[in-house]
Design a protein around this nucleic acid. Sequence first.
DNA 1: CTTATTAAGGACAATATATATCCGCAAATG
DNA 2: CATTTGCGGATATATATTGTCCTTAATAAG
Lengths: 162, 162
Amino acid sequence: MILKSQVEWALHCCAILAGLPQGRYLSTKALAELHGLPKEYLSKALQSLSQASLVETTLGPSGGYRLARPTSEINFLDIVEAVEGKSRTFTCSNIRANNPCRPKDFCDSKPCSVARVMWQADEAWRNTLKSVSLADLVETLSEDVPADIWKNTFEWVLQRAG
Amino acid sequence: MILKSQVEWALHCCAILAGLPQGRYLSTKALAELHGLPKEYLSKALQSLSQASLVETTLGPSGGYRLARPTSEINFLDIVEAVEGKSRTFTCSNIRANNPCRPKDFCDSKPCSVARVMWQADEAWRNTLKSVSLADLVETLSEDVPADIWKNTFEWVLQRAG
DNA sequence: CTTATTAAGGACAATATATATCCGCAAATG
DNA sequence: CATTTGCGGATATATATTGTCCTTAATAAG
Ligand code: FES
Ligand code: FES
């Protein structure tokens, strides 16, 4: 089990969009070039963000993407779920029902104990992701990334932002 | 991203092995029949458990598997990792290094902030799985599964246990 | 108005992973 | 010896991921 590489892409793109001045857009082309990613395929990830209403788009030259909400109101889980889907990482195929000792018409009242534990772990994962907002990420990044690289990057971005 | 179905299989098989009397073995054939699973493929999952030293095996007629440790000393994470591997669910391909504004010889001192959050969530998932032992599972199961089915199942199992 | 640029999305191909089967080997049992 | 078992390798199939290509409609700039 492994998350799609698009998750890393989407999170980094959102981090860049989070640093964009109010009202400006950034295109797939710029985001792909900045991160060294295949433009067409990155586009699919951005479309997922769009469908999840995390970003807004506009067409034409100087078009592209911007965040649809303040950075404090978008969290990691929003982005991960937009790309990975919202289904749980553990799926129970109800193999307990194959037990030959069970009456054939027996109907379980609860989900299986095994599945409940797995889903509890899934919830812990989700809760952690939910607890970190894009605003938190930008703050951490601006501490971690050397000031000159950070500055140069956003100059580079602003030159290309519509 | 989705866990292999073998995870569900392995957990249920361990739950059965946990109910086995001291020193008895149960074969792949019996475990496959009990859960309605393809014997050959289930065998791969059990081999994973064996390689992780969670179970002991013996060959020949009346051979099969038994737990290698007391049920209180085997947890969900042990079993899940045996089947899924121990690598993290999020892999960072270091796309930040592709930023054209970075000096080419620049070397990051820390893992990326994005990855750190994802790994933190991964840890939360693992910690939850680690906190539930096979002993806990058996206790919950024996409460959830109707007493007669539970009893019949272990009669069925004991008839086949070597 | 015309042209260039953009997001959106459908079709498709390549690759990787998960699922499944089959076979031969060596150990254990009786 | 004959049978049963776990183990590992080889292989096949199905599904998911990754990636490309193309068309369409909207938008901005000249
Ligand atoms: S039957 Fe699916 S987890 Fe128990
Ligand atoms: S570079 Fe991999 S998560 Fe940031």
